[in-house]
Design a binder for these strands. Structure first.
Lengths: 221, 221, 221, 221
DNA sequence: TATGAATGAGACTTCATTCAT
DNA sequence: TATGAATGAAGTCTCATTCAT
């Protein structure tokens, strides 16, 4: 994941405590500003002002806006993973329940990070470094899904007419882009209903049984 | 849709023939440059150079870079509509065939406009004018789908447990985002197989019958 | 002489009259500022202020300070050539007189351009572009001298123990560096006496006869 | 020579042993960096890194980059003197041999310090402190030469038509600038031949007898 | 209409120097 | 003494937009 490529020349570990605090303040401020103004309209000075440090201090820790963005996204990435893979001990055999749980986790994580996801989405497809970040975030989900579908096919649970790789891309796109539509573009939605509907479509597409809970049961997230 | 907001102060109709030609040259050049360099890295001078006109001429026709972009996207929008609604006379009763045809048309249109779609994607979610353009393009597809699903439900062809609106968003996201993944992010894919797989998932999700053509039958698009 | 490398991307010939005037004003102003402040302490803003144009106008014509400096030096180079090779019709057979005339011309040209010569001297030996300019200016003189000495040797006027190339470098250095000492470092001197003394040493070094004019005859320059 | 002006506010003698070592390390590092990057491109941080001390430590010993440069040049000056006045016991009556020895010493010293000489040359003629350093280095040589020529004239060895002061400047310029051309600008040369040719010209200019050694005798320096 | 020069605000980045520890 | 983080003034360059011809 080319960590070295994405961080400032000065490794965090070699910083004094004070330095680490300032650096962290910059990253935190950067995220807030990115969320408020988007990537392209964020100026280095916005970040330093938000962090309460002098302009030049930014360059003590980061070589450019691009690199602090990479750092913020890496944090996002971590948060996302943690958030969406909660309930790790549950190993129910009920596939539909597992899919529902994953979708619920994903939507919840997306909601908590919606602004940053919007920013990530707008980030230059034409910029190699940022594009790389994007692809990394994507692969985490798609590969995991493809493997799962494959296993389900091997177990005779899913029709072999379905191509695991295409399905992983398509169904992953369905969930993530829907989240974008609801949480970034702001189309009205109810999170629990969204979870159920998306899971319903997901399961039926793969031929897995899934029953909606009786109406009115809207377990809030 | 606030047409006036999105076009030059000077209406096209009031232009001389020469003026119309120059204007068209600018729009064409703008699209080419946007595709090559993306929205943010395109400078007005790039457009005028590509169009073979003087720098200042740009402002005879457009008030800003934003506005010529809107114009380009509107053209894209038209192309997209035209391209994806080909075979207008076919009114087969076979729903799956119609869905497949729509998906094939969408992917073909996406392929022909992939670079511009990438640019559209990177365009500021935070910018009201451009965001409006985005939403417009989206609504065309989603509303159409929602109505269709609704009709199918009314006809008893689709389970009423499915919410037409959520499904339209989810399945539309599935198709459009997959197209993005394949054609913009460049993940490897085969167009005909993609059409079939996406249609397969789409139909099964809704409970509509769909049979993959026998293997080896790869009708090229 | 790699003209293209040393000028702005926009060729002078393609400029409007107005543009040519502005460009010339910038070059003139640049020379004045370089002379007053030296190369390293000259800011682009100093040049534009001196030329009476806006900051950005500089970049309409030059890509950097380095490149406008190259332009100024090229002008200096031209002036220098013209100034120091006056009296072109005189083709006296008296070698000493010719050498004296050349030295007198050189010192006069140096005096007229002393500030710029000082700047040229301080210009980064470490910078390839500027270093190239330096070498070009040097070669004009040294090669000319070497050829001349060679011819005098062929004619039996100069001892063949002398190596024409080393002598050209050494005697050229003598004249040019003395000029630097007097006119840039400001050591006291009298120009006519300097011409005579330098010519005397030059001629005797080569074994050519040269008589100082009777004392008191100080033809002023 | 305003020693106080050119050194740190803290006199070396009042430093602890540890302090003296750190200070010396800085001066040594500074010279190395100046030689590698030139004066203007050398940053204080380069020096401290090369010396292996913390950034702030620099300012414990020197008030500015200018002042540590002065220190380095003073060292250069000392080296130069020592190097070029080797063979102190020889007091031959042969003037030509003495001139040759001096020239050989000068070229050897120049060669050993060529990079620093280049840096010195590029240093601002417009900066009073640094200019002072320059002049000091020059005077050492010129005054010595002028006195010598004067003595030779008094002894009837050199024509009184020659002005000792002008000749000292001119001949000194010849030697030093030739060294610059060969060793800094990098024109090809052979050191022993250079010594002989320069000495030959020097002696003949003054009317002193000098015989080139028989060909092939290239005493290596 | 067309031209292209002129403008200047705005963003980026550097780095000598200061300062708290 | 030594450290290295913090500062911010100063400079560079860009480019959307205006304007005189």
């Amino acid at each position: 994941m080319a960590r070295a490529m994405r961080e400032s020349a000065v490794p965090v570990s070699s910083l004094t405590l004070r330095g680490q605090r300032t650096r962290a303040a910059l990253v935190k401020a950067a995220r807030a500003v990115f969320e408020r103004r988007g990537y392209h309209d964020t100026r280095v000075v916005d970040i330093t002002k938000a962090a309460g440090v002098a302009y030049g201090t930014f360059y003590t820790y980061f070589d450019s806006k691009e690199l602090i963005f990479a750092e913020v996204v890496e944090e996002l990435h971590r948060d996302f993973r943690a958030e969406s893979s909660s309930d790790p001990e549950v190993t129910s055999d009920d596939l539909a329940a597992r899919i529902e749980r994953t979708n619920r986790g994903y939507l919840r994580a997306y909601r908590k990070n919606a602004r940053m996801m919007a920013v990530l989405d707008q980030v230059d497809t034409f910029n190699p470094v940022l594009r790389d970040i994007r692809l990394t975030l994507r692969h985490h989900w798609v590969e995991r899904s493809a493997h799962m579908i494959q296993r389900w096919q091997d177990a005779g649970l899913v029709d072999k007419a379905i191509d695991a790789s295409y399905a992983a891309t398509a169904l992953g796109s369905m969930v993530s882009r829907s989240a974008f539509v609801w949480l970034v573009l702001g189309e009205p939605y109810d999170e629990e209903q969204a979870v159920q509907q998306v899971t319903l479509l997901y399961c039926r597409a793969l031929g897995l049984p899934y029953e909606l809970p009786p109406e009115g049961d809207t377990r809030s997230s």
